[in-house]
Design a binder for these strands. Structure first.
Lengths: 250, 250
DNA sequence: CGGGCGATTGACATTCATCAAGTCAAGTGG
DNA sequence: CCACTTGACTTGATGAATGTCAATCGCCCG
């Protein structure tokens, strides 16, 4: 038990079925023929509310379902034998998570809400049955897992070949992209995680993250107060993220 | 072309179709009902020979197929904009690789044979069709991707929270396990990669790897000459790999 | 025999983690 | 409403782990 109560109340800003959900276009039904959305509705449970820090599932728990973020944000963390936490993923509205458990039938990491969030739960056995009948859904799932694998590989490359600054800048640009994909501002947004979590995700000490952000601010590349971030010079950031880039004209 | 000929004479144990392949039990058909193996035979192309350093597929190439190692060994590498190489995976007989391309339809990394290897190619479109008809195969593929994702996450944790020594030891133990799973000796085996590649995979400089291995040898935990490795004190290695482990009885 | 890659070893440099203090904001309880 | 606590963040000083550079060796392969 951790002190987060368990309100499970659905909210009328976000609809309870895929056919009328404003997120559907960027969510699981993405790319599916419209008629098949109705079938998905049978799958998805009413979205449930999770408060900040509340667990959605726990490491080592048996795997029955995967989840989709409707609103808010979620992190996945792995806790090793020494009790150290390692942040593995950040999920924003429309993102599916929880498939880490398919491998051996139990979750390999925990998922926690970073703020008040609405989460759809999808029973995996049901999902599998639908997959067999809907080739596009089958493909979608594989693509999704492949994307996550590629993201992990990107992080691996960053961790072993990049400086703290490069990692931080790439993180900022990645967030920017993801917000843009969601039709939100890509130049001004709020970090969903605490800086401690963000540093952990990047394999850095909080202090290092703090210093790097300070430096970026002093150079006039970003503005940052608290978790509110604004990108002032995107080109310069991109140049840092990809050091091989040379400005032929500018 | 590079001269690489390493006759791995094993051959007649490896056959051209799944039903008679000695690897089948630990390969893709794993867990499928025997009758369905024949259907897989329709999928898999005759295994092809690749020599050391030969590419199996290239980064950015369009994705049509995935592959299975029948004999030998394969590495996948990502080459960044600066031309630096990063080793992402090591694949041994029975392992499937190449699904990195499902995401956006093109491979995100290259695959290279580490020694003379036999590789089965499987057309992905065909595989997908069979998946729809064979629920177990569908599940298997998802599990496989999940496993790879979990492996990547393990590496991420190691890279950001572990010392060079811990990483190296875990790598050795992981190899040991994988060889054991293949019914080979888990205490004495040959590193499939050069030490340069292994160091790269572990996010270390070759020099560091060399020094760490030297230290492990001096402490009598392993014997190593060239790529031939022998584990002398597995318990001690495990204690290093998982520092929280305390010997209650021994 | 010669060339080159892979590996080892030593000396040195540097990034980043760690430790320590202190600020700030937001609760929380009396 | 004020003292107290707590968590998130910042800033500075220091040190350690590991990368980088350089020299050398052995060995495989042409």
């Amino acid at each position: 038990m951790d002190g987060a109560q368990t309100y499970q109340v659905s909210v009328n800003t976000v609809s309870e079925n895929c056919t009328s959900c404003s997120l559907a276009a960027g969510c699981l039904p993405k790319g599916l023929p419209w008629q098949q959305w109705r079938q998905l509705d049978a799958l998805a449970r009413h979205p449930a509310v999770f408060v900040r820090r509340q667990r959605i599932y726990s490491q080592n728990a048996p795997f029955y379902s995967c989840y989709i973020v409707k609103s808010g944000a979620v992190k996945t963390v792995y806790i090793n034998a020494q009790g150290q936490e390692r942040v593995l993923g950040l999920y924003l509205p429309g993102d599916l998570f929880g498939l880490d458990g398919v491998g051996d039938g139990s979750h390999t990491c925990s998922a926690q809400a970073l703020e008040r969030s609405l989460i759809c739960r999808i029973n995996f056995a049901d999902l599998e049955q639908h997959m067999a009948r809907m080739p596009k859904l089958q493909r979608l799932l594989l693509q999704l897992m492949s994307d996550q694998l590629n993201a992990a590989h990107g992080l691996i490359c960053s961790l072993s070949q990049s400086t703290a600054e490069e990692r931080v800048v790439r993180f900022i640009l990645e967030l920017s992209d993801r917000y843009r994909q969601r039709k939100l501002s890509g130049t001004e947004f709020r970090l969903a995680m605490t800086k401690t979590d963000a540093a952990n995700y990047l394999g850095l000490a909080v202090e290092t993250l703090s210093r790097v952000l300070g430096r970026l601010r002093n150079r006039g590349l970003i503005r940052i107060q608290g978790r509110q971030l604004q990108i002032l010079n995107e080109a310069a950031l991109k140049a840092i993220a990809d050091p091989s880039h040379i400005f032929l004209d500018s």
